[in-house]
Design a protein around this nucleic acid. Structure first.
Length: 186
DNA sequence: CATGGGATTGACT
DNA sequence: GTCAATCCCATGC
C-alpha cells in the first residue's frame, strides 16, 4: 500500500475529458485508527475491503467528495487518498467548476480536485482501469519524481505515521506544505 | 430513532 | 490565526 501510494505519484487521473498528474497522496490501512476501515466491514467501508483498483469516494465534512484508490487484496481495508493534482487537460472546465483562475488553486487539495474533475459519490466502487474515473500510468516526463515522505494532515489519530507523499517543491501540493520531510525514494 | 464526529475549504479578524 | 457550512454514517438507546 505504501508502494502504491508512492507509485501513484506522477500517474494521470482523468474524468469527463479533464485530467491531472498526481503530485500528492496519503496511505490508509485498516491496522491504524485514522483509516475508515479501522472499524471493520460496514456499508461505508465495504468498498475499502473489496477488490483493489476500485475508487473509494466518500463525503467529507458534509461538503466535499474525496477520491481514493483501493489497494491490497480483497479482505484487507486499505486505500490511497489522492490529495493533489497538477492540471493537465481540460483546464478551462476546471476553472469553470472551481470558480477560480490560478492554476495552482484548481486541484491543490483532495476536495478541490474532485470538484475540478466533476467526481462525486456515484463513482464510489467504480473500476479505475475502465470506469468513469481512470488512473493511467506515468508519462515519460514523470518517470522519476523526487518524492518526499511526511506526516499525514487533517486527521486526529495515528498522526505520527509518515504516510503522506508529495513531489518535492511542486506548487500544486496542498497546504500546509510538508514540514518534517524526508526522502522516500522512487 | 437521536446524536456526534469528521482524510476540507473559504471567508473573515 | 479562528470558524462555520453540511451530510453521511457509525454508534447507542
Amino acid at each position: 500500500m505504501l508502494v502504491v501510494a508512492k507509485a501513484l505519484i506522477g500517474c494521470v487521473v482523468e474524468h469527463d475529458g479533464v485530467a491531472g498528474v498526481i503530485v500528492e497522496t496519503e496511505a490508509y490501512h485498516d491496522s491504524e485508527p485514522a483509516c475508515h476501515a479501522f472499524v471493520g466491514v460496514t456499508p461505508r467501508t465495504a468498498t475499502l475491503f473489496g477488490p483493489p483498483g476500485r475508487a473509494y469516494v466518500y463525503r467529507s465534512y458534509g461538503i466535499h467528495a474525496l477520491l481514493n484508490a483501493v489497494c491490497e487484496p480483497e479482505g484487507v481495508g486499505a486505500a490511497v487518498l489522492i490529495r493533489a493534482l497538477q492540471p493537465l487537460a481540460g483546464i478551462s472546465a476546471m476553472r469553470a467548476r472551481r470558480g477560480v483562475q490560478r492554476e495552482q488553486d484548481l486541484c491543490s487539495g483532495p476536495g478541490k480536485l474532485t470538484q475540478a474533475l466533476g467526481i462525486d459519490l456515484r463513482e464510489n466502487g467504480s473500476d479505475l482501469a475502465c470506469g468513469p474515473v481512470r488512473i493511467c500510468a506515468r508519462e515519460a516526463a514523470w518517470r522519476k519524481p523526487q518524492i518526499l515522505a511526511s506526516e499525514r494532515i487533517g486527521i486526529t489519530k495515528a498522526v505520527e505515521l509518515p504516510w503522506r507523499f508529495s513531489v518535492a517543491g511542486n506548487p500544486h501540493v496542498s497546504r500546509p506544505r510538508p514540514l518534517a520531510v524526508s526522502p522516500a525514494g522512487h
